[in-house]
Write a protein that binds this DNA or RNA. Sequence first.
DNA 1: TCTAATAAATGAATGCCGTTCATTTAGTGG
DNA 2: CCACTAAATGAACGGCATTCATTTATTAGA
Lengths: 242, 242
Amino acid sequence: MLETTDERAGMPAVSATEGRPPGSAGTQRRRAGRPSAAVLDKAGITAAALELINRKGYDGLTMAALAKELDVAPSALYNHVAAKRDVLLLVEDHLTSLVDVSGFGPAPWEDAVRGWAWSYRNVFAEHTPLIPVIAVLPVTDAPQTLAMYETVSKGFLDAGFPQERIVSSIVALESFIFGSAYDVTAPADIFESGSMAEATPHFTAAVRSAAGQVDGPPADAAFSLGLEALIAGLGALREQRA
Amino acid sequence: MLETTDERAGMPAVSATEGRPPGSAGTQRRRAGRPSAAVLDKAGITAAALELINRKGYDGLTMAALAKELDVAPSALYNHVAAKRDVLLLVEDHLTSLVDVSGFGPAPWEDAVRGWAWSYRNVFAEHTPLIPVIAVLPVTDAPQTLAMYETVSKGFLDAGFPQERIVSSIVALESFIFGSAYDVTAPADIFESGSMAEATPHFTAAVRSAAGQVDGPPADAAFSLGLEALIAGLGALREQRA
DNA sequence: TCTAATAAATGAATGCCGTTCATTTAGTGG
DNA sequence: CCACTAAATGAACGGCATTCATTTATTAGA
């Protein structure tokens, strides 16, 4: 149900607050009743939600806080969204538009997928609370997300992928990407077995020898390993093109 | 911080409620003060939480409902867990003990990994609200989870895996498994593009041709595709064993 | 053996959160 | 001109996790 107003989002929503710095509640109160010019719209709500998330994280994204950010009563939000989930949907769809799909077309299929996957993971690693929302999200409700799927699908088709395997392939890649996004947020010492170390000798040894490798964050090593395996394995499905 | 009392959990916690059907609040009230025999323990809390989840889902798992299930005041729970997160941890660790790792050892590495991954995904597909918890969970706090890692690590090592790549390989597989678990819960019509169908011709065509295939749930096709790619790709890391 | 500390329960209270509803005011279509 | 709808306010509501004072029972130490 999202309109494609996304081009306006991302900028600090000047329209909504008429230049007043958002969050600094204006001195004069707005009196009750419909204002001459609408204060809220979906683009403004999206931008304010993103600003709030960046400043206070997802715990800070409450309907009350969002209303304050927009200098509005909390109940006013419900004239534009049916529930908080709709706000998360707006944010999700905006973020998806930031995922880099530019490799599809010019670059070889392997490079296009690689660039897309890294970009996709990096965007949502900062927004893992959205992942449960995305997973159950009908694409109809998210036009930017649908646009991404279209670009990727075309890339797979042009690379010689059999049409009936494209969706499954994308879903498999996405599953790996979402799971890996969580991984980025894990604490560095997540695998320290502590007092139970002597009960788990093989695992403990594996953790220690992995720590010896010094190239970048461990989440990146696992992501690279899995992604290259997926690219190789899925790439084998392609037929030779005309 | 979980004790390894897990063997007792899983059964309907007779110890905690002394045979009275849990949930049917006893007629006589328990008076204030410490009772002669402890009413609560971690195994009982775990079993009651699982029972509640099975009956009402994760929305029904509230501290108040859990207390009622155990015929106890909500505040009593906080003598045994520091926060609701700890309850989820107890549940997670119990579920992990249900994951089938029996293939490691007897079966060839590929078959062992395949069986483990399917089992792991199936267990947590019913418990996706736990996934964000697992992702940030230090293994020290979950002995059963640690035991699973030990078994899997040994299986990889015995199959000729280089030690320093084992953790990354397991993490990559787990990421795919967790992402795929979400996928199972997705509605069947998630990819119906509806009114925007003509704007996304390649994707719409791909969705339709995939629907033509009739073998099992679409989530299973994607999981199988990705898992086989990962097994093939990761398997290539093995050295030839002595 | 008395006694202080600790453990485990009750019950009342707190603060936050998402959401609803009555009300007010402003634009809009017939 | 008038009914209807859209968009705001502000006051509620129920539910949630969590805390705290209090009571009672067990346990450790002098």
